[in-house]
Write a protein that binds this DNA or RNA. Structure first.
Lengths: 158, 158
DNA sequence: GCCATACTGTATGGAGACATACTAACTAGG
DNA sequence: CCTAGTTAGTATGTCTCCATACAGTATGGC
């Protein structure tokens, strides 16, 4: 609602931050809505698609690849497992590990995830060139790196 | 360690979304950390600075300007009021309304907020030109508009 | 004046993620 | 061996926000 036009009259740091934040939230909302018919949210769909593509993976590997914590990843796997879209196999080489795999039903669902995604992506990209998208990503990554060093610095002796 | 943060190997939609999301979270974290010494988080600092600049405002006005919901705004005002950085005055013209004002102590703190912000902003902007920042904002806004129409469309059964 | 409607602020419950701490299990040094 | 340190997954508490529902108040049509 309040996301459409960003005429926030807020202090500058908040303006930047909240624009990014609001955009992120909106993307999540759009995808959640789009995937709703499939009974998935964005995170679940992402996990499912990722595992479908890369096969048997430990939860820690998944967490790292998806940029989530291990706890959050475990919860997602729980949810997907309950719907039998995914199953956990024991790792013969390491008894601590669950190897996560997509079931047949899961693979079928992934197809629909891809379709839904393509429709939505097209809408989101309207009026934004490929070049702009790439620049957006590049700047965000640099910003992320700056943030990482700021946070790291803060820990070391300040 | 967390330097190489973003080599996400995730599905494309998640890559875009999670980059934005992660960046937003990191910004929030950085500011929270920076404001920690002042006993504030980003949202509280923003609210405080905003009210300090614009004077007596209702919570709804503040919520709108800061891009938050009314409930969240009320909670922030509660927290700031408890520390006596802000006080609520009744509106003589409308008994539903609280007019929020910054106390003397609050105004002093705002000065420090500005200082902290300037230091951090400089670090975040390292290696990013003004032009790039403006483009970033512009693209985000367009993306936000696309998202808004997608969400709206979804409701109107177009 | 009286009523329907709209708006302010609050309470509550839920979503989604993180940080921390814990158990079980692996691994390397002696 | 066996102990210390590390890692995988889980449990718990917290944070920040949203959505919804509610009570009190305002406002405009009649």
């Amino acid at each position: 609602m309040s996301m459409s036009s960003h005429e926030l009259d807020a202090p500058p740091w908040l303006r930047v931050e909240s624009t990014i934040m609001a955009t992120a939230r909106a993307i999540r909302q759009s995808y959640d809505k789009r995937f709703e018919g499939l009974g998935l949210n964005l995170s679940e769909a992402s996990l499912l698609a990722y595992v479908a593509e890369h096969g048997s993976l430990s939860q820690t590997q998944i967490a790292k690849s998806l940029g989530l914590g291990r706890a959050a990843t475990g919860a997602l796997v729980d949810a997907l497992q309950e719907r039998e879209l995914v199953r956990r196999e024991t790792d013969p080489d390491d008894r601590r590990v669950w190897l996560v795999e997509v079931t047949i039903a899961g693979k079928e669902l992934v197809e629909q995830v891809y379709e839904s995604d393509q429709v939505l992506r097209k809408q989101l990209r309207a009026g934004i060139t490929r070049e702009e998208r790439q620049q957006l990503a590049a700047v965000l990554v640099r910003l992320g790196n700056n943030l990482a060093s700021v946070l790291a610095e803060e820990i070391e002796t300040t």
